[in-house]
Design a protein around this nucleic acid. Structure first.
Length: 626
DNA sequence: GCCGGCCTAAACAACT
DNA sequence: CAGTTGTTTAGGCCGG
């Protein structure tokens, strides 16, 4: 695969360069990418500049791992990055990037703060309801309240708060820092002056929640340091305490002056010991955080809508929520990474296609339009998938949230996705519309561009013999003929050492272009607290290493459990009303397979229940998502 | 270069 | 009549 990766690198470099050039062409106006964040951030800065800056920062951030991998940044495409890193890994990387971004921001002149603002927007961007969960855990950190697990400085009590209250609250509590404080922080390197007003005004589109934003920014003065590796590693360096800063106690409403850490500790133990009052303050703080979360979620939704709206303008600069085409363009499934050994780094999830930098036209983006080069980067080739034998169930289970929230093209073929959707259904049968809904529910990517992928879905259903149309009383449903499906994909992979080696080589980091990064940042935020970098080894990995190459867990399980006979999807009982079948289905029911599948799937994720499906069907009509 | 897999696009028919 | 569903064909890219 190394060789293959190299060839892909070469092959896709032009595309990547396209993407990069589009970025640099925009950012060069502001000083050029190499200028980093410092070169063009003085004075007034527009949202566009902010974005560019952020992109540049992101770019710079990724260069580090790239160099670690002894590779030239320019030679790594975003798609390759995705190949190399699994979403959890990307997520971890993003964490680093965010930290770096924040740190970079600290180097910017007071008042410029663009990076942070952009970052905040990214935070907001990803706060869809599904993403909400992930951010919750991070919120305290985001707000500068310390690590979730650490001693978060409590804030005075507020039972119910509006934005105005929040602002006041922040002033009272986390101490909206005075200019002097900010300056002090700047000097000490501990914080930065994210001058609230200038920051908010620099992003007028978001001023609907400027209060909150301002407050967030203010608190990020404190909190941003939590994101920096420096802070992580020196969290408790001498003289540092989450509740102590600039010579005073930061316990809400306290502000007692303490000359040194010793004095502070003493003060802390005396004044803020474990008593009813402190406990109550902590409770209040929890409520505060909760309120903020709610508020943040709301505002984020609004921001999302705003950005989506602004997104539609063709001439608009690249927004943050670019469709993240990790698997790339026509590459929906550039690599059916349907079976990463979970204990190993994910192989390239997709081959290379640049992230489509620009969204063409209005809300609906045709897949082809997503790519600077319509076919330049083909779809994931199945053979790649075969090579990696990535179980879609496993991958989805692990990165469920990622795909739900990130506008990432899933690295699976339509066929495998459809199959998975159907097998995931309680009866292992779905109507076309249910399949649509599954797609939109599971993948943010499919919430756009519906005409294209729906057509593709229908095309695949009709084309592949493995999909069997069954008419019952309720109408037509689609099922999977596993026999045909497996025929379609003869397992060739037999756990070759090369594969394993290649998998490990996936540890190498690639580079991301800015849009990719932005999207990554966007999506990763929701994942920051949801997954580990590397999943423990699993049956999938074992199977993988033992050459049980199948494209998903269910397949693997099937092999194990069905005594050699592939379990058919249909049973006479199940399809008693069947009137028409495109192709004769096998009539054996193998429940063990589905059970195993379910077990596998639910192992790592909350299995979307049937109820969820229906709910979603009700709440999330496909077209509504357009 | 050929072949097969995959994706996208489009045309068309049948059905609702 | 419009929209949905299903089928089919064509063209292109990519990997083997």
């Amino acid at each position: 695969m190394m060789v293959e990766s190299a060839s892909e690198t070469i092959r896709t470099t032009p595309s990547n360069q396209n993407g990069v050039s589009s970025l640099s062409s925009q950012s060069d106006g502001g000083g050029g990418r190499e200028g980093g964040s410092n070169g063009d951030t003085n004075g007034e800065i527009s949202p566009v500049d902010l974005l560019h800056l952020q992109q540049q920062q992101v770019w710079l951030c990724v260069c580090v791992p790239v160099s670690m991998a002894m590779m030239t940044p320019q030679m790594i495409t975003p798609q390759q990055m995705q190949q190399i890193l699994s979403p959890p890994q990307l997520q971890a990387l993003l964490q680093q990037q965010q930290a770096l971004m924040l740190q970079q921001v600290t180097d910017e002149p007071p008042g410029s703060v663009p990076g942070l603002h952009v970052w905040m927007c990214l935070c907001s961007e990803v706060l869809t309801h599904t993403a909400y969960q992930g951010i919750l855990l991070q919120l305290p950190v985001l707000l500068g309240l310390g690590h979730p697990g650490s001693n978060a400085p409590p804030i005075p009590s507020r039972s119910a708060m509006g934005p105005g209250d929040l602002q006041q609250l922040w002033k009272e509590v986390s101490g909206v820092q005075s200019a002097e404080d900010a300056l002090k922080q700047q000097q000490t390197g501990e914080g930065l002056d994210l001058s609230t007003n200038s920051t908010s005004s620099s992003f007028p589109k978001a001023n609907t929640h400027s209060n909150l934003h301002s407050n967030l920014h203010n608190n990020l003065h404190n909190g941003q340091s939590h994101h920096t590796p420096k802070r992580d590693s020196h969290e408790e360096h001498a003289g540092s305490h989450p509740l102590y800063g600039h010579g005073e106690c930061k316990w809400p409403g306290c502000e007692a002056l303490c000359e040194d850490m010793g004095q502070f500790i003493k003060h802390l133990n005396n004044e803020h010991a474990l008593d009813d009052r402190s406990t109550a303050q902590c409770r209040v703080q929890m409520q505060v955080v909760q309120q903020l979360e709610i508020q943040l979620a709301k505002e984020s939704e609004r921001l999302q809508a705003m950005m989506t709206h602004l997104h539609m303008r063709p001439s608009e600069p690249k927004p943050f929520n670019q469709p993240l085409n990790l698997a790339s363009s026509g590459s929906l499934l550039k690599r059916e990474s349907e079976a990463y050994p979970e204990g190993l780094p994910h192989p390239p999830t997709s081959a290379a296609a640049p992230i489509t930098p620009l969204r063409q036209g209005p809300s609906v983006i045709s897949s082809s339009s997503l790519h600077s080069h319509p076919h330049g980067v083909g779809p994931i080739r199945r053979r790649n998938a075969d090579k990696f034998c990535t179980p879609i169930a496993s991958e989805l289970a692990q990165n469920c949230e990622f795909y739900k929230n990130a506008d990432v093209r899933p690295p699976f073929t339509y066929a495998s996705l459809i199959r998975h959707a159907i097998l995931e259904a309680p009866d292992r049968q779905l109507t076309l519309n249910e399949i649509y809904n599954w797609f939109t529910r599971m993948f943010a990517y499919f919430r756009r561009n519906t005409a294209t992928w729906k057509n593709a879905v229908r095309h695949n259903l009709s084309l592949h013999k493995c999909f069997v149309r069954v008419e019952n009383v309720k109408g037509a449903v689609w099922t999977v003929d596993e026999v045909e499906y497996q025929k379609r994909r003869p397992p060739k992979m037999t756990g070759s050492p090369t594969l394993v080696k290649n998998m490990i080589s996936g540890l190498g980091f690639g580079s991301l272009n800015a849009s990719y990064q932005a999207a990554l940042a966007e999506s990763s935020l929701t994942l920051l607290n949801s997954q580990g970098l590397v999943n423990p080894s699993s049956a999938a990995s074992l199977n993988m290493l033992h050459g049980m190459g199948h494209d998903d867990v269910s397949s693997t399980v099937e092999q194990v459990n069905s005594n050699g006979s592939c379990s058919p999807t249909l049973s006479p009982q199940q399809y008693g009303h069947q009137v028409h079948v495109k192709e004769e289905p096998t009539e054996v029911q193998d429940d063990s397979r589905s059970v195993s599948l379910m077990a596998t799937v639910t192992q790592n994720m909350a299995m979307p229940s049937d109820r969820d499906d229906h709910d979603l069907d009700d709440d999330l009509p496909t077209e509504e998502l357009e």
